[in-house]
Design a protein around this nucleic acid. Sequence first.
DNA 1: CTTGTTGTACTAAGTGATTAATACAATCGT
DNA 2: ACGATTGTATTAATCACTTAGTACAACAAG
Lengths: 120, 120
Amino acid sequence: MEWKLTDSRPIWQQLTEQITLRILKGEYPPGGRLPAVRDLAVQAGVNPNTMQRAMAQLEQDGLAVGSRTAGRAVTEDTAVIQAARRKRAREAVAQCLQILADLGYTREEAVALLKEEWEK
Amino acid sequence: MEWKLTDSRPIWQQLTEQITLRILKGEYPPGGRLPAVRDLAVQAGVNPNTMQRAMAQLEQDGLAVGSRTAGRAVTEDTAVIQAARRKRAREAVAQCLQILADLGYTREEAVALLKEEWEK
DNA sequence: CTTGTTGTACTAAGTGATTAATACAATCGT
DNA sequence: ACGATTGTATTAATCACTTAGTACAACAAG
């Protein structure tokens, strides 16, 4: 389990995104229990407080539910998970197309570039 | 001239990216002079020091050249500009495809999503 | 030559992110 | 009942980013 903390953005945001990704991929299945905050913090090499903040964001997004002392679990609401998955995919595509448009790429150039990168 | 400073990343990085974009689009033509650091800072509503840091990054990227007292200009090397343009486009596409792959999208689903978003 | 503009440098202060080190209450397993 | 684990809260310290204010040397234009 790898943790990539390369951006110059707040670490807790990056942690939230990566845990979210694991939920969306099903690596953390719906209803399944999440590792303890302390364990996750050790794995990621960050302070427990930072991981705590990432988990709080996860709950606010509705992807995780916290029971006071029995640990944290992924939501059982698969609709929420699927909606988040589609949203993330759409955002990624929209951002990419926005950048290409900003750079003045025509539709043909963009399609060509997409096909080219797809092969890698 | 709009300046979007919305991310939680360092402002100078965002400034560098947006000035870079203007160079890549040709809004700041090769060899053309760039506005003074102080003027740009006022336009963007940031401290001159912050804009200064953004410009230093531009020079390090080879997109701008600074003469000690006659202001700063865009590089005349169009090859550098075009290379940066292609690099940015490739990175955008690669990142998008990476996210889609992480989310478990098949090639068909990805193509469908791309076509769908393209229409907007 | 004088004046204004330019890039650059410097210090000080404020803010947010992160780390560190604890501490506490609630619950689960034994 | 008891100990271990869990989420949560608190306080302080450190660090990077940002702002503010000022200053200086080099060059252009008058």
